[in-house]
């Protein structure tokens, strides 16, 4: 298992474990981040952070710290 923040551009992964707690966890849930869900890293911002991810048909920007809280496996 790696962290979502380690994903390189255009790589796909499957969520294995959510480390986020409390409100952040609920927030991720509401964006469809659940165990077993697929995520693709679309691009990094010019300044290196945040990163744009694609979850299902939605594009979402996450900062490094938040992406670090999502344990994933490359696919």
């Amino acid at each position: 298992m790696i962290r979502l923040s380690e994903l390189a551009r255009n790589e796909r992964c499957r969520v294995v474990k959510l480390f986020a707690q409390g409100k952040m966890r609920l927030r991720l849930h509401s964006f469809g981040v659940f165990e077993g869900e697929e995520i693709r890293a679309v691009r990094k911002s010019v300044l290196g952070d945040p990163t744009m991810y694609q979850i299902d048909t939605t594009y979402v920007a996450l900062r490094y710290e938040e992406a670090f809280l999502i344990g994933v496996e490359r696919i």
Binding site: M24, F31, M52, Y59, V60, L62, E66
Partner: peptide, 9 residues
């Protein structure tokens, strides 16, 4: 705090 931003089409 945490930051999640949706980027609409």
């Amino acid at each position: 705090s945490s930051f999640i931003l949706e980027l609409p089409p």
